[in-house]
Design a protein around this nucleic acid. Sequence first.
DNA 1: GGTTTTTTGTCGTTTAGTCGACACTTCCTA
DNA 2: TAGGAAGTGTCGACTAAACGACAAAAAACC
Lengths: 235, 235
Amino acid sequence: MLITQEKTKNPEDPRVVRTRRLLVDALNELMGEKSFDAITVSEIATRATLNRVTFYAHFQDKYALLEYDLSNRVQSQLQATLDDHPQLSEDSVHALLAFVCSFLENAERHCPPPRGQMQGLMEKLLKQHIYEVLLDELQHHPAYKTKSNKAGSPSVQQTAMVTAWAIYGAAFQWSQQDKRQPVAQFTPEVLPLITANLAPYLEPRTNKAAPQRVAAGRGPSALLGASLRFAFSFS
Amino acid sequence: MLITQEKTKNPEDPRVVRTRRLLVDALNELMGEKSFDAITVSEIATRATLNRVTFYAHFQDKYALLEYDLSNRVQSQLQATLDDHPQLSEDSVHALLAFVCSFLENAERHCPPPRGQMQGLMEKLLKQHIYEVLLDELQHHPAYKTKSNKAGSPSVQQTAMVTAWAIYGAAFQWSQQDKRQPVAQFTPEVLPLITANLAPYLEPRTNKAAPQRVAAGRGPSALLGASLRFAFSFS
DNA sequence: GGTTTTTTGTCGTTTAGTCGACACTTCCTA
DNA sequence: TAGGAAGTGTCGACTAAACGACAAAAAACC
């Protein structure tokens, strides 16, 4: 469960929805201009055409806003990535991995250093949402009933957790390399290390030319705000 | 004086400013999709992520909103057009005329028919703001004092009014033609008809290659909203 | 023609956002 | 190192926006 540290307001109220949208948009704009550390709450509020007090009515501090924003993006993008595949397969797991790689790469490219706080936050969110999305997938899998009852074999929770860590770990290792190999070359290489534990749930891989695609047909920057996309496309 | 039919609210309040901006943006978006007649107040409010009641707290109806929007654009664009010229000259008057032509042309191109109400509204606003901007220019002209005191000669008000009508009339006549000649060809042709009455105030025309430019260096679509620009650039 | 259906305006009431002010921390520089 | 500037976080009083509901006008439909 995600604790998005929001104050007690009716999250259905259009004013609340609009205000959060304005704050998120403002943050994204500013992130295209300077490092997250250098951004102040006052700046965010001003850019959002909102009062500073209103910011605090919604988020504890700028870190809570960043988490709220990143979490939403990661979640919806991961879900969209899986939605493009009819069921769990090597392809869909590969798509997840490619998505995480591109996410890390883009974060590095768009957000001016220092990225102190962001690093840990992204790790936390990515693992969390990969876990949730995988768990959901496994629990709705045809093989779920038979697997879950067999004593001694790993639970779906365990399987999802280990796989989530494996996916993030792989992507992280790749992102840390000095001279990275291309994503399209890297991901198929490590894929077996990830899918091994999923074997009971996996459809055999299709032969279509799908593997190279990143984030299931969406460009890597789909997960970034408009201004970041803008900054990116001209960098 | 412009009667922008606004309800009694503090126009300085950031919430008010933001709300009006949202309404204007929503209207512009919708105008890129359908005719003004086909747009409802509910649609505008929904698109602006505002309650319908809030719309009525700011504008009497959709026509008041359109007037508010067009008026602001016409005014700022006209002002900017003149601001690019150091003082009143044939060039600046020519720029005004070219601006009005391009305004009429773009309105026709971007706004799906029928344009019943818009026609009259644009005429009213254009004439009004041309008058205001010209009057301001004449009153600050070095020759103002001597002219204004000479009995029997036209007042600056009279001069501004006649010139405003002449400029709009010329542009309108051009826009009504079945097969229009290019603006760059038309405007120099009629310019003498307009500047005749301004002779006492005018600097001689420069020889620079300025005449062709429209709206003082801005593209014609500078006066249109983002979505309209978008729709335009791909039409 | 008459009858649904949609859109328009306008009410109170409730809730979110703004404002000014305050005490506090942090950082910078004289 | 003292002190000024800038950022943070919170308070209570005021104002704008949301909501549901209503009647009445317009449009759409048969």
